[in-house]
C-alpha cells in the first residue's frame, strides 16, 4: 500500500485519479528477474521473441528489486533461498505484487512429499497475489496470470475503504 492509498473519501476526483493511476500501473508492470529453476526458462521464453511480454507492458525485466513492481517467483523455493526471497520482497517498493509461477511455488509440486529442503509453497514466505499452476506453466499461462494481475490493479482504488472505519471500531472494542 503506497502513501496515497486509503486517505480520501470516494468522489469524482478520486475515481478519475484512480482510473489514471491504475491505467499507468497496469500498462507498465516491471517484473523482477527472479528465475529460480525450470520455470525461469519459460519466463525467459515469455520475454523472448514469440510470446513477447512487452505487448502487455511488462517486458522491462529489472535485475534489482528496488525498481520492480512484480516478483514472478519462477521455480522451486528452497529453505536456503527462502530468507533471500523474503529479503528481496521487502526491498521492493509498494505497490508490489507476487505471482507464484509453477507447481513448486504454488505448493511444493513434485517435491512435496520427499523434498526435505523444499518450501511447500512460496505463500509460506511472502504473500502471493496470483498462482499460475503447471510444471512448468506454458508461456500463455503466465501471460494469463499477468492479465489477471492487470485486472486486479485496474480495480484498485485510492479511496478510503468504507469498512476500515468499522474494522477500526471493532478492533478498538
Amino acid at each position: 500500500m503506497s502513501w496515497i492509498d486509503n486517505r480520501f473519501e470516494e468522489g469524482l476526483i478520486v475515481t478519475s485519479l484512480d482510473w489514471a493511476i491504475n491505467w499507468g500501473r497496469t500498462s507498465s508492470i516491471w517484473p523482477m528477474t527472479f528465475g529460480l529453476a525450470c520455470c525461469a526458462i519459460e519466463m525467459m521464453a515469455v520475454g523472448a521473441s514469440r510470446f513477447d511480454i512487452d505487448r502487455f507492458g511488462a517486458g522491462a525485466f529489472r535485475a534489482t528489486p528496488r525498481q520492480s513492481d512484480l516478483m514472478i517467483v519462477a521455480g522451486t523455493v528452497t529453505y536456503k533461498m527462502a530468507s533471500r526471497l523474503k529479503r528481496l520482497y521487502n526491498q521492493m517498493p509498494d505497490p508490489k505484487y507476487v505471482i507464484a509461477m509453477g507447481a513448486c511455488t504454488v505448493g511444493g509440486g513434485p517435491y512435496f512429499k520427499h523434498g526435505y529442503h523444499v518450501v511447500k509453497g512460496v505463500d509460506l514466505v511472502v504473500p502471493v497475489d496470483f498462482y499460475v499452476p503447471g510444471c512448468p506453466p506454458r508461456p500463455e499461462a503466465l501471460l494469463e496470470g499477468l492479465m489477471r494481475l492487470q485486472d486486479k490493479i485496474l480495480h484498485q482504488t485510492r479511496a478510503k475503504d468504507p469498512m476500515s472505519r468499522v474494522r477500526a471500531e471493532v478492533l478498538a472494542k
Binding site: Y79, A82, S83, F112, Y116, H117, V119, K120, L124
Partner: peptide, 30 residues
C-alpha cells in the same frame, strides 16, 4: 544444505524436519 541444517538427509534413517526457521516444513495432510 544450509550450514545450520540438522542431520544428514540421505541416510536411510533420516527424519524429515517439521519446521525450518519458522517456515512449516510439512502440512497436516502430509
Amino acid at each position: 544444505c544450509p550450514d545450520d541444517w540438522e542431520g544428514y538427509p540421505l541416510r536411510k534413517d533420516y527424519e524429515f524436519p517439521l519446521e525450518y526457521h519458522g517456515i512449516p516444513a510439512t502440512t497436516e495432510h502430509q
